[in-house]
Protein backbone atom coordinates (compact mmCIF):
# COMPACT_ATOMS: atom_id res chain seq x y z
CA UNK A 1 0.00 0.00 0.00
CA UNK A 2 1.40 3.39 -0.95
CA UNK A 3 1.02 6.82 0.59
CA UNK A 4 -1.55 7.64 -2.09
CA UNK A 5 -3.95 4.99 -0.89
CA UNK A 6 -3.95 5.85 2.77
CA UNK A 7 -3.70 9.61 2.31
CA UNK A 8 -7.19 10.57 3.49
CA UNK A 9 -7.31 8.41 6.66
CA UNK A 10 -3.74 9.52 7.43
CA UNK A 11 -4.51 13.20 6.83
CA UNK A 12 -7.66 13.10 8.89
CA UNK A 13 -5.69 11.51 11.75
CA UNK A 14 -3.03 14.25 11.47
CA UNK A 15 -5.74 16.94 11.43
CA UNK A 16 -7.45 15.46 14.47
CA UNK A 17 -4.08 15.18 16.22
CA UNK A 18 -3.31 18.87 15.57
CA UNK A 19 -6.81 19.78 16.68
CA UNK A 20 -6.50 17.92 19.99
CA UNK A 21 -3.04 19.39 20.55
CA UNK A 22 -4.33 22.90 19.78
CA UNK A 23 -7.29 22.58 22.13
CA UNK A 24 -5.23 21.11 24.94
CA UNK A 25 -2.37 23.65 24.82
CA UNK A 26 -2.33 27.28 25.81
CA UNK A 27 -1.14 29.61 28.52
CA UNK A 28 -4.43 29.25 30.37
CA UNK A 29 -4.83 25.75 31.87
CA UNK A 30 -7.98 24.28 30.38
CA UNK A 31 -8.39 20.50 30.19
CA UNK A 32 -10.03 18.76 27.26
CA UNK A 33 -12.63 17.45 29.69
CA UNK A 34 -13.53 21.00 30.77
CA UNK A 35 -13.80 22.04 27.15
CA UNK A 36 -16.04 19.06 26.42
CA UNK A 37 -18.27 20.14 29.31
CA UNK A 38 -18.41 23.67 27.95
CA UNK A 39 -19.48 22.36 24.55
CA UNK A 40 -22.11 20.07 26.07
CA UNK A 41 -23.38 22.93 28.17
CA UNK A 42 -23.66 25.07 25.07
CA UNK A 43 -25.75 22.50 23.22
CA UNK A 44 -28.00 21.64 26.16
CA UNK A 45 -28.81 25.15 27.26
CA UNK A 46 -27.45 28.35 25.83
CA UNK A 47 -25.99 30.44 28.61
CA UNK A 48 -23.44 33.14 28.11
CA UNK A 49 -21.79 33.50 31.48
CA UNK A 50 -19.32 36.30 30.96
CA UNK A 51 -17.75 35.95 34.39
CA UNK A 52 -16.41 32.48 33.91
CA UNK A 53 -12.86 32.87 32.65
CA UNK A 54 -12.58 29.24 31.51
CA UNK A 55 -15.65 29.70 29.32
CA UNK A 56 -14.27 33.01 28.08
CA UNK A 57 -10.95 31.49 27.14
CA UNK A 58 -12.68 28.66 25.32
CA UNK A 59 -15.38 30.58 23.44
CA UNK A 60 -13.68 33.88 22.78
CA UNK A 61 -10.02 32.96 22.44
CA UNK A 62 -9.12 29.36 21.80
CA UNK A 63 -12.05 28.31 19.62
CA UNK A 64 -11.99 31.36 17.27
CA UNK A 65 -8.23 31.06 16.95
CA UNK A 66 -8.36 27.35 16.12
CA UNK A 67 -11.16 27.88 13.61
CA UNK A 68 -9.19 30.75 12.06
CA UNK A 69 -6.04 28.61 11.78
CA UNK A 70 -7.99 25.83 10.04
CA UNK A 71 -9.72 28.22 7.68
CA UNK A 72 -6.65 30.26 6.82
CA UNK A 73 -4.43 27.18 6.49
CA UNK A 74 -6.90 25.47 4.17
CA UNK A 75 -7.53 28.70 2.25
CA UNK A 76 -3.88 29.60 1.67
CA UNK A 77 -3.01 26.03 0.70
CA UNK A 78 -5.92 25.87 -1.75
CA UNK A 79 -4.93 29.22 -3.23
CA UNK A 80 -1.33 28.05 -3.52
CA UNK A 81 -2.31 24.83 -5.24
CA UNK A 82 -4.59 26.72 -7.63
CA UNK A 83 -1.92 29.27 -8.55
CA UNK A 84 0.73 26.59 -9.01
CA UNK A 85 -1.63 24.65 -11.28
CA UNK A 86 -2.60 27.68 -13.33
CA UNK A 87 0.91 28.96 -13.79
CA UNK A 88 2.23 25.43 -14.34
CA UNK A 89 5.05 26.37 -12.04
CA UNK A 90 5.93 24.83 -8.68
CA UNK A 91 7.67 27.99 -7.44
CA UNK A 92 4.50 30.02 -7.45
CA UNK A 93 2.93 31.05 -4.15
CA UNK A 94 -0.43 32.75 -3.50
CA UNK A 95 1.17 36.19 -3.44
CA UNK A 96 2.45 35.91 -7.03
CA UNK A 97 -0.10 38.47 -8.26
CA UNK A 98 0.63 40.94 -5.48
CA UNK A 99 -2.22 40.13 -3.06
CA UNK A 100 0.00 40.00 0.01
CA UNK A 101 1.99 43.06 -0.99
CA UNK A 102 -1.24 44.99 -1.67
CA UNK A 103 -2.83 43.84 1.58
CA UNK A 104 0.37 44.67 3.43
CA UNK A 105 0.35 48.20 2.02
CA UNK A 106 -3.31 48.65 3.01
CA UNK A 107 -2.74 47.42 6.57
CA UNK A 108 0.42 49.45 7.05
CA UNK A 109 -1.41 52.55 5.81
CA UNK A 110 -4.21 51.80 8.30
CA UNK A 111 -1.72 51.57 11.16
CA UNK A 112 -0.01 54.77 10.01
CA UNK A 113 -3.34 56.62 9.98
CA UNK A 114 -4.18 55.32 13.48
CA UNK A 115 -7.23 53.37 12.33
CA UNK A 116 -9.10 50.77 14.40
CA UNK A 117 -8.36 47.04 14.02
CA UNK A 118 -11.51 46.52 11.94
CA UNK A 119 -10.55 49.31 9.57
CA UNK A 120 -7.01 47.94 9.24
CA UNK A 121 -8.43 44.54 8.27
CA UNK A 122 -10.81 46.11 5.76
CA UNK A 123 -8.02 48.18 4.23
CA UNK A 124 -5.82 45.09 3.97
CA UNK A 125 -8.56 43.08 2.30
CA UNK A 126 -9.63 45.87 -0.05
CA UNK A 127 -6.16 46.80 -1.20
CA UNK A 128 -5.18 43.14 -1.67
CA UNK A 129 -8.14 42.62 -4.01
CA UNK A 130 -7.56 45.95 -5.73
CA UNK A 131 -3.93 45.08 -6.39
CA UNK A 132 -4.83 41.87 -8.23
CA UNK A 133 -7.48 43.72 -10.25
CA UNK A 134 -4.83 46.24 -11.24
CA UNK A 135 -2.38 43.49 -12.14
CA UNK A 136 -4.98 41.79 -14.36
CA UNK A 137 -5.98 45.09 -15.99
CA UNK A 138 -2.40 46.12 -16.74
CA UNK A 139 -1.47 42.61 -17.94
CA UNK A 140 -4.29 42.81 -20.52
CA UNK A 141 -2.70 45.94 -21.95
CA UNK A 142 0.72 44.34 -22.26
CA UNK A 143 2.17 43.21 -25.59
CA UNK A 144 3.35 39.85 -24.24
CA UNK A 145 1.95 36.91 -26.14
CA UNK A 146 1.79 34.61 -23.15
CA UNK A 147 -0.97 36.02 -20.92
CA UNK A 148 0.24 34.12 -17.84
CA UNK A 149 3.78 35.44 -18.21
CA UNK A 150 2.58 39.03 -18.42
CA UNK A 151 0.42 38.48 -15.31
CA UNK A 152 3.45 37.28 -13.36
CA UNK A 153 5.66 40.10 -14.58
CA UNK A 154 3.10 42.80 -13.82
CA UNK A 155 2.50 41.11 -10.45
CA UNK A 156 6.21 41.28 -9.61
CA UNK A 157 6.42 44.93 -10.66
CA UNK A 158 3.39 46.06 -8.66
CA UNK A 159 4.46 44.03 -5.61
CA UNK A 160 7.78 45.87 -5.75
CA UNK A 161 5.92 49.19 -5.85
CA UNK A 162 3.83 48.14 -2.84
CA UNK A 163 7.05 47.15 -1.08
CA UNK A 164 8.40 50.62 -1.74
CA UNK A 165 5.16 52.11 -0.39
CA UNK A 166 5.46 50.01 2.78
CA UNK A 167 9.06 51.12 3.25
CA UNK A 168 8.07 54.75 2.77
CA UNK A 169 5.33 54.50 5.41
CA UNK A 170 7.76 52.74 7.76
CA UNK A 171 10.15 55.64 7.31
CA UNK A 172 7.44 58.21 8.07
CA UNK A 173 5.76 56.28 10.91
CA UNK A 174 6.24 57.13 14.56
CA UNK A 175 9.24 54.98 15.50
CA UNK A 176 8.02 54.44 19.05
CA UNK A 177 4.45 53.28 18.55
CA UNK A 178 3.49 52.75 14.90
CA UNK A 179 6.69 51.15 13.67
CA UNK A 180 6.55 48.21 16.12
CA UNK A 181 2.88 47.63 15.21
CA UNK A 182 3.73 47.63 11.51
CA UNK A 183 6.58 45.19 12.06
CA UNK A 184 4.40 42.83 14.09
CA UNK A 185 1.64 42.95 11.47
CA UNK A 186 4.03 42.14 8.64
CA UNK A 187 5.30 39.10 10.55
CA UNK A 188 1.79 37.65 10.77
CA UNK A 189 -0.10 36.08 13.64
CA UNK A 190 -3.51 34.88 14.74
CA UNK A 191 -3.49 36.52 18.13
CA UNK A 192 -6.56 38.59 18.98
CA UNK A 193 -8.92 37.04 16.41
CA UNK A 194 -12.51 37.28 17.59
CA UNK A 195 -15.68 35.44 16.65
CA UNK A 196 -16.93 38.52 14.83
CA UNK A 197 -13.73 38.59 12.73
CA UNK A 198 -14.51 35.01 11.79
CA UNK A 199 -18.12 35.79 10.97
CA UNK A 200 -16.91 38.37 8.49
CA UNK A 201 -14.10 36.31 6.97
CA UNK A 202 -15.47 32.77 6.95
CA UNK A 203 -18.08 33.47 4.23
CA UNK A 204 -15.39 35.07 2.04
CA UNK A 205 -13.15 32.03 2.38
CA UNK A 206 -16.04 29.68 1.66
CA UNK A 207 -17.03 31.74 -1.40
CA UNK A 208 -13.42 31.48 -2.57
CA UNK A 209 -13.19 27.74 -1.95
CA UNK A 210 -16.49 26.77 -3.57
CA UNK A 211 -15.65 27.46 -7.24
CA UNK A 212 -12.18 25.97 -6.81
CA UNK A 213 -13.72 22.84 -5.39
CA UNK A 214 -16.55 22.52 -7.89
CA UNK A 215 -14.39 23.26 -10.93
CA UNK A 216 -11.29 21.43 -9.73
CA UNK A 217 -11.45 18.96 -12.65
CA UNK A 218 -11.01 21.86 -15.06
CA UNK A 219 -7.68 22.73 -13.48
CA UNK A 220 -6.17 19.57 -14.97
CA UNK A 221 -7.13 20.92 -18.39
CA UNK A 222 -5.72 24.35 -17.61
CA UNK A 223 -2.32 22.84 -17.01
CA UNK A 224 -2.25 21.78 -20.65
CA UNK A 225 -1.03 24.32 -23.23
CA UNK A 226 -3.81 26.82 -24.02
CA UNK A 227 -4.44 25.50 -27.55
CA UNK A 228 -4.94 21.94 -26.36
CA UNK A 229 -7.22 23.04 -23.55
CA UNK A 230 -9.30 24.99 -26.07
CA UNK A 231 -9.69 22.02 -28.35
CA UNK A 232 -11.04 20.09 -25.36
CA UNK A 233 -13.86 22.59 -25.25
CA UNK A 234 -13.16 24.74 -22.22
CA UNK A 235 -13.09 28.50 -22.19
CA UNK A 236 -9.53 28.99 -20.98
CA UNK A 237 -9.79 32.72 -20.31
CA UNK A 238 -13.01 32.48 -18.34
CA UNK A 239 -11.91 29.48 -16.31
CA UNK A 240 -8.61 31.12 -15.53
CA UNK A 241 -10.39 34.28 -14.38
CA UNK A 242 -12.65 32.28 -12.07
CA UNK A 243 -9.62 30.53 -10.55
CA UNK A 244 -7.67 33.76 -10.15
CA UNK A 245 -10.66 35.52 -8.57
CA UNK A 246 -11.28 32.65 -6.14
CA UNK A 247 -7.64 32.18 -5.14
CA UNK A 248 -7.24 35.94 -4.71
CA UNK A 249 -10.35 36.18 -2.54
CA UNK A 250 -8.98 33.37 -0.37
CA UNK A 251 -5.56 34.94 0.01
CA UNK A 252 -6.86 38.46 0.63
CA UNK A 253 -9.30 37.23 3.29
CA UNK A 254 -6.58 35.15 4.96
CA UNK A 255 -3.98 37.91 4.92
CA UNK A 256 -6.40 40.57 6.19
CA UNK A 257 -7.00 38.41 9.25
CA UNK A 258 -3.57 36.92 9.88
CA UNK A 259 -1.07 39.35 8.37
CA UNK A 260 1.63 37.98 6.09
CA UNK A 261 1.99 34.23 6.63
CA UNK A 262 4.67 33.21 4.16
CA UNK A 263 5.67 29.80 2.83
CA UNK A 264 2.46 27.96 3.62
CA UNK A 265 0.87 28.44 0.21
CA UNK A 266 4.14 27.47 -1.46
CA UNK A 267 5.14 24.39 0.53
CA UNK A 268 1.80 22.73 1.27
CA UNK A 269 0.88 21.97 -2.37
CA UNK A 270 4.29 20.26 -2.69
CA UNK A 271 3.61 18.06 0.33
CA UNK A 272 0.15 17.34 -1.02
CA UNK A 273 1.56 16.44 -4.44
CA UNK A 274 3.74 13.80 -2.79
CA UNK A 275 0.62 12.20 -1.39
CA UNK A 276 -1.96 12.84 -4.09
CA UNK A 277 0.01 13.26 -7.29
CA UNK A 278 -0.62 16.05 -9.78
CA UNK A 279 -4.33 15.38 -10.37
CA UNK A 280 -5.96 18.57 -9.12
CA UNK A 281 -9.17 16.73 -8.19
CA UNK A 282 -7.19 14.93 -5.47
CA UNK A 283 -4.58 17.63 -4.95
CA UNK A 284 -7.00 20.35 -3.84
CA UNK A 285 -8.66 18.52 -0.91
CA UNK A 286 -5.30 17.02 0.12
CA UNK A 287 -3.70 20.51 0.10
CA UNK A 288 -6.56 21.95 2.13
CA UNK A 289 -6.34 19.27 4.81
CA UNK A 290 -2.54 19.49 4.96
CA UNK A 291 -2.63 23.30 5.08
CA UNK A 292 -5.20 23.31 7.88
CA UNK A 293 -3.23 20.78 9.94
CA UNK A 294 0.10 22.54 9.36
CA UNK A 295 -1.12 26.04 10.23
CA UNK A 296 -2.98 24.73 13.27
CA UNK A 297 0.18 23.02 14.48
CA UNK A 298 2.37 26.06 13.74
CA UNK A 299 -0.04 28.40 15.50
CA UNK A 300 -0.11 26.10 18.54
CA UNK A 301 3.69 26.36 18.60
CA UNK A 302 3.52 30.13 18.17
CA UNK A 303 1.36 30.58 21.25
CA UNK A 304 2.95 27.97 23.51
CA UNK A 305 6.64 27.65 22.62
CA UNK A 306 7.74 30.59 24.79
CA UNK A 307 5.98 32.94 27.17
CA UNK A 308 5.27 35.58 24.52
CA UNK A 309 3.74 35.10 21.07
CA UNK A 310 6.17 34.14 18.35
CA UNK A 311 5.09 35.68 15.03
CA UNK A 312 3.59 33.09 12.72
CA UNK A 313 5.61 34.24 9.70
CA UNK A 314 8.86 33.33 11.48
CA UNK A 315 7.66 29.83 12.34
CA UNK A 316 6.13 29.04 8.95
CA UNK A 317 9.41 30.06 7.29
CA UNK A 318 11.47 28.03 9.79
CA UNK A 319 9.34 24.93 9.17
CA UNK A 320 8.57 25.56 5.50
CA UNK A 321 11.99 26.46 4.10
CA UNK A 322 13.96 23.41 5.36
CA UNK A 323 11.11 21.16 4.28
CA UNK A 324 11.10 22.73 0.84
CA UNK A 325 14.86 22.17 0.51
CA UNK A 326 14.38 18.56 1.61
CA UNK A 327 11.74 18.07 -1.07
CA UNK A 328 14.02 19.61 -3.70
CA UNK A 329 16.95 17.36 -2.83
CA UNK A 330 14.72 14.28 -2.71
CA UNK A 331 13.11 15.20 -6.02
CA UNK A 332 16.53 15.53 -7.69
CA UNK A 333 17.68 12.20 -6.30
CA UNK A 334 14.70 10.47 -7.83
CA UNK A 335 15.45 11.85 -11.24
Amino acid sequence: MTLTHIKYPLLICVCLGSLLLAFSSGQYPLSLQQQGMLLLHFFSQHSNDINDSAANVFWHLRLPRILAAIMIGAGLAAAGAAYQGMFRNPLVSPDILGVSAGAGLGAVLGIYLDQSMLMIQLLAFGSGMLMVLLVCAIARLSQQRDPMLSLVLVGIALAALCGAGISLIKLLADPYSQLPSITFWLMGGLSGISLSDLQATMPLILIGLLPLFLLRWRMNLLSLPDDEAKTLGINVRQTRLIFIASATLLTAAAVSLAGIVGWLGLVVPHIARLMAGADFRQLLPTSMLTGAALLLFTDTLSRTLVDIELPLGILTACIGAPFFIFLLIRGQGRR
Binding site: G26, Q27, Y28, V57, H60, P180, S191, E309
Partner: peptide
Protein backbone atom coordinates in the same frame (compact mmCIF):
# COMPACT_ATOMS: atom_id res chain seq x y z
CA UNK B 1 8.42 45.00 23.04
CA UNK B 2 6.44 41.81 22.54
CA UNK B 3 3.13 40.54 21.30
CA UNK B 4 1.34 38.43 23.91
CA UNK B 5 -1.76 36.24 23.80
CA UNK B 6 -5.03 37.09 25.48
CA UNK B 7 -4.90 33.75 27.33
CA UNK B 8 -1.63 34.82 28.83
CA UNK B 9 -3.11 38.13 30.00
CA UNK B 10 -6.03 36.30 31.67
CA UNK B 11 -3.53 33.98 33.30
Amino acid sequence: LAQVSMEQIIQ
